[in-house]
Amino acid sequence: MAMVETRANAPGGRKFRVDLQVLGPILALVLLIVIGTILNPDFLAPRNITNVLSRSAFIGIIAVGMTFVITAGGLDLSVGSMTAFIAGLMILLMNALIPALGSGWATIAIGMGAGVIIGALLGAANGLLITRMGIEAFIVTLGSMVIFRSLVTWLANGGTISLNFALGNIYEPVYYGGLFGLRWPIIVFAVVAVLGEITMRHTAFGRHCAAIGSNAQVARFSAVHVERVRLMTYVLLGLLVGLASVLYVPRLGSASNTTGLLWELETIAAVIIGGTLLKGGFGRVWGTVVGVLILGLIDNILNLTDLVSPYLNGAIQGVIIILAVVLQRARKATR
């Protein structure tokens, strides 16, 4: 046969390896749930689960967008400070609108709309610098990360930007309320995740992202508008950051320079744990969702039990991130 030379070591092993690759994150998640249940019987109580999920929802919504950016060979370090900046702007805008529109849903609706639009614009700014100016994504978003963080600190004058109290009370149900016992952030996260998964697997956009991340030249010769698709991934991510901000503001009713701190790292970590390749070319949204849940559960378990100090949360997350990449490497080596 013509192909023995190049693939002689491949037969047989592939199926099994792929299965492991698919099952890995899920097994880790199941393991965590089992451990959590053993350590604390309250772990599976609806209240706790709701808690974990609504806290994870922000990271989750952003991580779905990040999956597309990374799959297309990009990266965005600015999402955490972008959240803070958008939240700050939203609050300032809504407070400023009260004299004109009063403390009601009209003001809030404009604030929410503005949040999403600002997010898309900030994402577009990142994306344009990366695609049109040809600057590396790491550099651009490192710069914008610092800029957004600085701007929100400046807007807050070094302190906290607070939403008008009356308005805050009206807005509150957007985080704490919900449908069928599920809070809004959880519902939105679920919808975003499902749409994201469909987009990644079953649309030309998702296919193009993977093609660009694998080999941008091949994509270009295959009639893919490489720069446009790349730009769109950043716009999509910005839009989702805006959406996360819209859900985040009613939670505390304020924004400060610690809002969204290190979210970029948690987001990227979730994407990588979920099996998306950091160098691009392959991404899966459901994996990212599992990654988000894993990170959220670790945090929760450490908080519920006193086996390990919650201060070690970061260390454990770090180990898991590195482990996930080691497993990816192992897969590549056997390929």
């Binding site: 993977a210 093609a211 694998s214 030249q217 091949v218 010769f221 392959f282």
Partner: peptide
């Protein structure tokens, strides 16, 4: 290898990309 096919994807995805 550099301009024609994505070596890390399967035949179906490569075939229909254009």
């Amino acid at each position: 290898k550099e301009h024609g096919l994505i070596l890390t994807q399967d035949m179906r995805r490569n075939l229909t990309l254009l």
